[in-house]
Simulated assay, not measured.
Amino acid sequence: MPRTSEARRAGVLGHPIEHSLSPVLHRAAYDALGLEWEYDAHDVTEESLPAFIDALTGEWAGLSLTMPLKVAALPLVDFIEPMAKLVGAINTVLVQPVAEGRQLVGANTDVHGIVAALREGGVQQADAGVVVGGGATATSALAALGRLGVTKPIVVVRSRARAGALMRAATKMGVEPRFVSFEDAPHYLARASAVVSTVPADAGAGLATSLTESTVLDGAVLLDAVYSPLDTPLGLSWERAGGTFVRGTRMLLHQAGEQVRLMTGREAPLASMSAALDQVV
Score class of each variant (00 low, 15 high):
Thr198Glu: 15
Leu236Asp: 10
Ala208Cys: 05
Gly149Glu: 14
Asp231Glu: 15
Arg158Val: 06
Gly133Thr: 04
Leu148Tyr: 06
Val226Ile: 12
Arg147Asp: 13
Ala136Phe: 15
Ala194Trp: 04
Ala143Lys: 01
Ala190Met: 12
Ala170Val: 07
Leu207Pro: 01
Arg247Ile: 13
Thr232Gly: 08
Ser159Val: 02
Glu183Thr: 13
Leu142Ser: 03
Gly206Thr: 11
Asp184Thr: 11
Met173Ile: 05
Arg160Pro: 05
Pro229Gly: 14
Ala141Lys: 11
Ala192Phe: 00
Val175His: 12
Pro153Met: 11
Gly146Lys: 02
Arg178Gly: 07
Gly219Tyr: 03
Asp202Phe: 11
Thr139Trp: 11
Phe245His: 09
Arg178Ile: 11
Asp184Ser: 13
Gly135Val: 03
Val156Asn: 08
Glu239Met: 10
Tyr227Lys: 02
Pro153Lys: 07
Ala194Arg: 09
Ser237Gly: 07
Phe245Glu: 01
Arg191His: 10
Ala163Lys: 02
Val150His: 01
Ala185Cys: 01
Gly206Pro: 06
Gly133Ala: 13
Gly242Lys: 08
Thr244Ala: 07
Pro233Trp: 00
Ala143Val: 07
Ala169Trp: 15
Glu239Gly: 04
Leu211Ser: 00
Ala163Ile: 09
Val157Thr: 01
Thr171Pro: 05
Val196His: 08
Ala163Asn: 07
Val130Ser: 00
Pro153Thr: 08
Asp218Phe: 12
Val195His: 00
Arg178His: 13
Thr212Glu: 15
Leu217His: 02
Val226Asn: 12
Ala126Cys: 03
Thr171Ser: 13
Val196Phe: 15
Ala185Trp: 14
Arg162Cys: 06
Ser181His: 02
Gly135Glu: 12
Glu176Pro: 10
Tyr188Cys: 06
Ile154Asp: 00
His187Trp: 07
Ala185Leu: 01
Leu207Glu: 00
Gly164Cys: 12
Thr209Ile: 09
Leu189Gly: 11
Met173Asp: 05
Val199Gln: 05
Leu223Gly: 04
His187Arg: 14
Leu234Tyr: 00
Ala143Asp: 02
Gly204Arg: 04
Ala208Asn: 01
Leu236Trp: 04
Pro229Lys: 01
Thr198Trp: 15
Leu148Ile: 03
Thr209Lys: 13
Ser140Pro: 00
Thr137Arg: 04
Leu217Arg: 05
Ala163Phe: 09
Tyr188Asn: 05
Tyr227Val: 05
Arg158Tyr: 09
Gly133Val: 09
Arg147Met: 09
Pro233Asn: 03
Trp238Ala: 05
Tyr227Phe: 10
Ala138Asp: 11
Ala143Pro: 08
Gly133Trp: 15
Leu230Asp: 15
Arg158Gln: 11
Pro153Gln: 14
Gly219Pro: 02
Gly206Lys: 03
Val195Met: 14
Ser237Glu: 09
Ser228Cys: 03
Arg160Gln: 07
Ala136Gln: 10
Asp202Met: 15
Ser181Trp: 14
Met167Pro: 03
Ser159Thr: 06
Gly133Arg: 06
Thr151Val: 10
Leu148Val: 03
Gly219Trp: 01
Val196Asn: 12
Ala143Cys: 10
Asp218Gln: 12
Ser197Glu: 09
Gly146Asp: 04
Ala163Thr: 12
Leu189Ser: 04
Thr139Asn: 15
Ala170Phe: 05
Val216Trp: 08
Met167Ser: 02
Ala136Cys: 02
Ser214Pro: 05
Tyr188Val: 10
Tyr188Gly: 03
Gly134Thr: 08
Asp184Glu: 14
Val150Asn: 08
